[in-house]
Design a protein around this nucleic acid. Structure first.
Length: 466
RNA sequence: GGCCCCAUCGUCUAGAGGCCUAGGACACGGCCCUCUCAAGGCUGAAACACGGGUUCGAAUCCCGUUGGGGCCA
């Protein structure tokens, strides 16, 4: 079996497109078939090479690989015009198509009239017998009966032929229409299963008639439900980030993205987490749901965190490196140290970006202290305790989490206060915040010198305020 | 407007006539754990759009209504 993903390079790879690409890819990998990438760039005004590069980059990032497609020549529609012309001539010769020179204005009038009668506009077919040799090329459609699309997801969907008219295959300027070029491409590429968005279901009966007129077998069809925004309209830019790159840049992992997209419209019992191998093994079209799904950002974030948590510190350090660098942090740091830092952060962030934000204090001293907490903790009593801590931390122990905790516990009981009192005071002084990874790990990672410096800075800040 | 698709908690979904007192997950609330925040564990609230059939029995089958989406312009 052979499937294809055929994006129009009019923008970045949209999550909806990525969704159908993934379903095609999973289907091919599951059944050991071929996955083909084809670029539908007939709309020359909106298609750009940059967009093609961007789509390819996004697919690579998702690790969706193709068996045939760019950069091999012949997989862009603009390179295939000879094929469309040849098939059009073939149809014309066989009598399946005919030229039409009806002026657009007249067609428009008829369309309006049909609308006024509350009927479907259907081209009259008046040029059918005229034997013209130029104009727009129309496909001769049956006047009666119906075409049934046997969809793998929706079952049998019937379209009455009186709703379908002789549609244009090739415009009078010689360019093929979308529906025609798709059929020719799928036929010449030997596509056996067309898995695409539900928005193409209405086009399918026209295409089926074209396959038959051309004398080729009709492939299987599977129309996957669309992805909607929170307001139930088609997911678009006004709902926020929609391109795969945008999610990558926001700090999502490709594994999480693939897992999330796979679970949109597909499921396998109660399971939520799937490795790539599991997806390939378990995915099947028969388990794909027919109804549209709303894109849920918070579930994606949760999934991303699940993957973050399972990753080791070293990997995370590499993945976070670009974000760290962009924030001007972490330059020249020891990889082992960075890896330990990441291990303390990964359970506290849903994205790589958040991870860097949460761990910012590891790389630079706090510029300010949370005001409410400072008012509560940075008091005269707080200053006394800080001074005591500075003194204690200067010499005692080996500055490892275990001994640091012991030191704090001892001091707390000596002062007759809770561990929490000393911990929060220190946390605020060290990170500027009241929430952070476990304090003693943080202190150990920062080291004796840095810890002492930050505590002294906090002490000075208290003094300065009073 | 015509045609087509869709309809289970707020969201993703399980459910293929009796297993359903409708299950899981996200999000939300509570409790536990705990140096904070998380993570984790336990727990709570939360849905079969509506109306007719079919059947001993319907979330599941059929019809209609309503609502949402798409295609054609």
């Amino acid at each position: 079996m052979r499937v294809r993903f055929a994006p129009s390079p009019t923008g970045h790879l949209h999550v909806g497109s990525a969704h159908t690409a993934l379903f095609n890819w999973l289907y091919a990998r599951h059944h050991g078939g071929a996955f083909i990438l084809r670029i539908e760039d007939t709309d020359r005004s909106r298609s750009t090479d940059d967009n093609i590069a961007s789509i390819i980059e996004a697919l690579r990032w998702l690790d969706i690989d193709w068996d045939e497609g760019p950069p091999t020549p012949g997989y862009r529609q603009t390179e295939r015009f000879d094929l469309y012309r040849a098939q059009a001539q073939h149809l014309l010769a066989a009598g399946g198509a005919y030229y039409c020179d009806c002026p657009p204005e007249q067609l428009e009038r008829e369309r309006k009239a049909a609308e006024a009668r509350k009927e479907t506009f259907r081209y009259s077919g008046r040029c059918r017998q005229r034997g013209l040799t130029a104009g727009a090329l129309r496909l001769r459609m049956p006047d009666e009966g119906a075409t049934v699309v046997n969809d793998l997801i929706h079952g049998a969907v019937t379209f009455e032929h009186r709703q379908l008219d002789d549609w244009i295959l090739v415009r009078s300027d010689g360019t093929p229409t979308y529906n025609f070029s798709v059929v020719v491409d799928d036929v010449t590429m030997g596509i056996t299963h067309v898995i695409r968005g539900n928005d193409h279901l209405s086009n399918t009966p026209k295409q089926i008639v074209c396959y038959e007129a051309l004398g080729y077998p009709v492939p299987e069809f599977a129309h996957v439900a669309m992805i909607l925004g929170p307001d139930r309209s088609r997911l678009s830019k006004r709902h926020g980030a929609t391109s795969i790159q945008a999610f990558r840049d926001a700090g999502f992992l490709p594994e999480a993205m693939v897992n999330y997209l796979a679970r949109l419209g597909w499921s396998h019992g109660d399971q939520e987490l799937f490795s790539r191998e599991e997806l390939i093994e378990l995915f099947d079209i028969k388990d794909v749901a027919p109804s549209a799904a709303i894109f849920d950002h918070s579930k994606l974030e949760w999934l991303n965190q699940q993957y973050l948590k399972r990753m080791d510190g070293g990997q995370l350090a590499q993945l976070a490196a670009p974000i760290l660098a962009a924030a001007g942090l972490g330059r020249g740091r020891d990889p082992v140290w960075l890896s330990r830092v990441m291990d303390t952060l990964k359970e506290r962030a849903r994205t790589l970006r958040e991870l860097v934000e949460v761990g910012r204090f590891y790389f630079e001293r706090p510029e300010e202290y949370e005001p409410k907490a400072a008012a509560r903790l940075f008091t005269a009593e707080g200053a006394r305790r800080l001074a005591l801590l500075i003194d204690e931390l200067r010499t005692k122990g080996d500055f490892e989490p275990g001994s640091l905790e012991q030191l704090y516990r001892d001091l707390a009981s000596r002062l007759g206060v809770g561990l929490v009192d000393l911990a929060q005071l220190t946390r605020l002084a060290i990170t500027g915040r009241t929430a952070s990874p476990p304090l003693f790990e943080v202190l150990a990672l920062l080291g004796r010198e840095e810890t002492a410096d930050r505590l002294r800075a906090a002490l000075a800040a208290i003094g300065g305020e009073r």
